[in-house]
Simulated assay, not measured.
Amino acid sequence: MGELFTPTHLIVIAVVVLVLFGGKKLPELGKGLGEGLRGFKDGMKGVTDDVNKPGDSAHAVTPKPEETVK
């Protein structure tokens, strides 16, 4: 069946992307993609940091004083 991404396939994909977006749009597209991936990575790091806090139980919920039921 062959390999999925041979050098020929990658060249064809690069040519199609260049034709669709043009040479001037590619740097903007790459910058936006990089910023999006960086934001996603930072967001995932924040989630794992919150989950892995030492001494903090993930199941314990302490209500704030204004949220108590009378």
Rank of each mutant, 00 (worst) to 15 (best):
F40N: 10
K45E: 15
K64F: 01
N52G: 03
L18G: 12
V15S: 13
M1L: 10
V51C: 03
K64S: 01
T62S: 04
L18A: 15
T68S: 02
I13E: 15
M44D: 07
D49E: 15
G30W: 13
G23L: 12
P63M: 04
V12I: 10
G32C: 06
I11F: 01
V47L: 12
V47M: 06
P54E: 13
T8H: 10
S57C: 06
I11M: 07
V17H: 04
G30I: 13
K64T: 00
G23W: 09
V19T: 12
V69L: 14
V47Y: 05
I13K: 13
H59P: 00
E35Q: 14
K24R: 12
D42M: 09
I11G: 04
G23M: 10
L4K: 15
G30D: 08
K25W: 06
V51D: 03
V61P: 00
P7F: 05
D49H: 02
K53F: 00
S57E: 07
H59K: 04
H59M: 06
N52A: 09
P63G: 01
G39K: 14
G46E: 05
V16D: 15
V17M: 13
V19H: 05
T8K: 14
K24G: 11
D42H: 06
L10Y: 02
M1P: 07
E35W: 04
K41F: 11
K70Q: 14
P54S: 11
V61A: 03
M44G: 02
V17I: 15
S57L: 03
K45T: 09
F21A: 12
K64R: 15
K24P: 04
P65V: 01
V16K: 14
G32H: 07
L18K: 13
P7Y: 02
D50L: 05
T48C: 03
A14G: 11
V12G: 06
E28S: 12
L4M: 12
T62P: 00
E3H: 11
G36A: 06
E35I: 05
A58Q: 12
L33N: 08
T8D: 15
G34R: 09
I13Q: 11
E3Y: 08
T6L: 02
G34L: 12
